[in-house]
Design a protein around this nucleic acid. Structure first.
Length: 487
DNA sequence: TTAGCCTTGAAG
DNA sequence: CTTCAAGGCTAA
């Protein structure tokens, strides 16, 4: 084993910065002064939004409708500023047509719930001591977790990198399983989505004089809002599923399909092996892992957020996390399998643990032992599929991977997924307040386990025992290359 | 036009 | 009563 490998891995995954950032305006990053028109914003963006809507102002961007909006530049392009106001979720309906002063509006309960959720998060974070690396940013500036957005319209950090501006309308239209999400061309998502967004949003270029009259004005966020209102009014006792989690479930591959594909592939391979003599169990496992990796890459390529990234970033993220995804996949299959005495393979075959023990060398035996321990924790938690799909995204969108071209995007996805997972756990298992913290601990354990597994495979590879010409080898090479170049 | 501060008034 | 998110005012 190359010297310092463990240390290097620890260096590769530095703990996140600890301090919680005070709440920032999602439009310009200035200091938040309270809830205004649907979400926490600064005083100036509140005023700007009010003036724009009340006076029915029309702005035209002199550039490409992708101007940077921050505290210093916010005055420069009102068109993009207003657009950003809508993107982050400010509500046209909250501007009163009659200009009545004082009192409260229908958003009151949402603000309250949002506050309660935020407070719960802070308490949880404190209880967890901010030790888990994913936790620190949760109480920071993002409002992706806000109750009334259903975890979605967030994405506000995205326009910082102007290349991946994602319109929220698509997601809102596609919640609860409608099929057409993400029709943008992968080659240049920014342009296509931007166009769809501006052309489909009457608030930006055309008249919106009727917004006060029509409760069904087709403006950004209406869907999320009306759903929220419905839920608030009619079914407050039913736990909500954050829309992001719904979307993750939709992206997740079908287990049976995968089982068939991989089994068929291995069957085909096996017929050619027979000519070369009997393969070892280890070699068989490698080929199976290889096929699982293909599935993982295929899943990632097709899933929300990831497909918006450049290939170079996609590669870096996958090179970083392939083993974690692989181990998680294996472990969750065992959770569903439910039997402690045998291992369920992706092909559907069952292998007795005693058989594994008799075959394993000490290092592998230790790996299996660690896997069993983590599996016990997952069993204890009765971790569900919704949580696992979220964890997969937490693993994939690791903001510690550097350098990335779309670093802010990856960070914002990480934060959104954390928010969605926390919201899901709080809503689905309200009696179990620390569940989110326990899941993050499992994730941390999973990371260390997968690092060990990678090291083990590297060792085997260096001694020539891993079958050639596959994805597994490429991942291991990337790892070895990384060790080499950064040492 | 902007943005900080002020006034208002229903909800809790 | 207090809270706080609406709209209003105004100097820069």
């Amino acid at each position: 084993m190359p010297p310092g490998l463990h240390l290097l891995h620890r260096l590769r995954r530095p703990p996140a910065a600890a301090a919680a950032v005070p709440e920032l305006c999602p439009v310009c990053g200035d200091k938040v002064s309270g809830y205004h028109y649907g979400l926490l914003t600064c005083e100036s963006c509140k005023g700007f939004f009010k003036r724009t809507v009340q006076n029915n102002k029309k702005y035209i961007c002199a550039e490409n409708q992708d101007c940077k909006i921050d505290k210093t530049h916010r005055k420069r392009c009102p068109s993009c500023r207003f657009q950003k106001c809508l993107i982050v979720g400010m509500r046209l309906e909250a501007v009163r047509a009659d200009r009545m002063r004082g009192g409260r509006n229908k958003f009151g309960p949402m603000y309250k719930r949002d506050r309660a959720l935020k407070q719960q998060k802070r308490a949880l974070m404190r209880a967890n001591g901010f030790k888990t690396e994913a936790a620190a940013s949760l109480v920071s500036s993002n409002q992706t977790d806000s109750a009334f957005t259903g975890s979605f319209p967030g994405l506000y950090p995205v326009p910082i990198i102007q290349t991946t501006l994602v319109p929220t309308t698509h997601y809102n239209h596609n919640c609860y399983g409608l099929p057409s999400l993400g029709t943008s061309t992968p080659s240049n998502p920014s342009i296509s989505t931007q166009r769809q967004y501006t052309s489909s949003n009457p608030a930006i270029k055309s008249e919106h004089t009727d917004i006060h009259m029509s409760s069904q004005a087709s403006v950004l966020g209406d869907h999320a809002y009306s759903e929220e209102l419905q839920e608030e009014t009619f079914s407050p006792q039913v736990p909500r599923m954050p829309q992001l989690v719904m979307e993750f479930l939709r992206c997740d591959p079908d287990e049976l399909q995968m089982q068939r594909n991989i089994a068929a592939h291995l069957q085909r391979e096996q017929s050619s092996w027979e000519k070369q003599g009997k393969p070892t169990a280890f070699s068989f496992m490698c080929r199976m892992a290889d096929q699982m990796l293909f599935s993982i890459v295929e899943w990632a390529r097709r899933c929300i957020f990831f497909k918006e990234l450049k290939v170079s970033d996609q590669m870096k993220l996958l090179h970083n996390c392939w083993s974690e995804l692989l181990v998680l996949d294996i472990l969750f299959r065992q959770v569903q399998h439910g039997k402690r005495s045998s291992v369920l393979l992706v092909t559907g075959q069952e292998v007795e643990l005693s058989a594994v023990a008799s075959y394993a060398d000490p290092t592998l035996a230790h790996l299996v032992q660690r896997g069993q321990e983590l599996l016990e924790k997952l069993h204890g938690l009765q971790v569900d599929r919704q949580e696992v799909v979220c964890i997969k995204f937490l693993i994939l969108f690791n903001p510690d991977v550097k350098p990335l071209e779309s670093q802010p995007f990856v960070e914002s996805v990480q934060e959104q997924v954390q928010g969605a997972l926390l919201e899901y756990t709080l809503c689905t298992y309200p009696q179990y307040l620390d569940r989110f913290g326990h899941l993050l601990l499992c994730l941390s354990e999973l990371r260390s386990l997968s690092t060990l597994a990678e090291d083990y495979l590297c060792c085997k590879h260096l001694s020539g025992e891993v079958p050639c010409n596959n994805l597994l080898i490429e991942m291991l090479h990337a790892k070895l290359l990384h060790v080499h170049t950064s040492w």
